[in-house]
């Protein structure tokens, strides 16, 4: 019994150690559901957002999850929207998913829109 127990502990230590290193290498910000922000969010690499925001978001990759709500300006290279947006979107690559609801202005280089999304917006294409 004692031998078996010690070997199990070793495995646990190894896995947690590796996980910490991975977390440090990715500059990822997660803003979970039910978080409310009034203001601006700026990040370098990746923002994963599921809360409520009134203000601006700026990052190279932005992922707005299905329960998110943003009122304001969203600027990024790659933006994926599953939630609700009321405002301006500036993106190089914009992916609008089926659960998205968008109102406002969209400026983009490349866009794809999934079936089911509700969009009431002015689109401005630039190459």
């Amino acid at each position: 019994m004692s031998i078996f127990g010690s070997s199990e502990k070793k495995v646990e230590e190894k896995t947690t150690f590796n996980f910490d290193i991975d977390k440090e290498n990715i500059n990822q910000s997660n803003l979970a559901k039910d978080i409310k922000i009034n203001g601006s969010i700026e990040a370098k690499d990746y923002i994963d957002f599921a809360g409520y925001l009134t203000g601006t978001i700026k990052s190279s990759t932005i992922y707005l999850k299905s329960n998110s709500y943003v009122k304001g300006t969203i600027t990024g290279d790659t933006i994926t929207i599953e939630g609700e947006v009321d405002g301006d979107i500036h993106a190089k690559d914009l992916h609008i998913k089926s659960t998205a609801k968008i109102k406002g202005n969209i400026r983009y280089n490349n866009i794809d829109i999934q079936n089911g999304s509700i969009i009431n917006a002015d689109l401005f294409y630039s190459s």
């Binding site: 866009i111 794809d112 089911g116 009431n120 917006a121």
Partner: peptide
């Protein structure tokens, strides 16, 4: 119901019916 493939160019206004 709208589906747009990546690469399409749209300039103008999009309105959802009955939204």
């Amino acid at each position: 119901s709208l589906q747009v493939s990546y690469g399409a160019k749209i300039q103008g206004t999009i309105r959802h019916r009955g939204s």
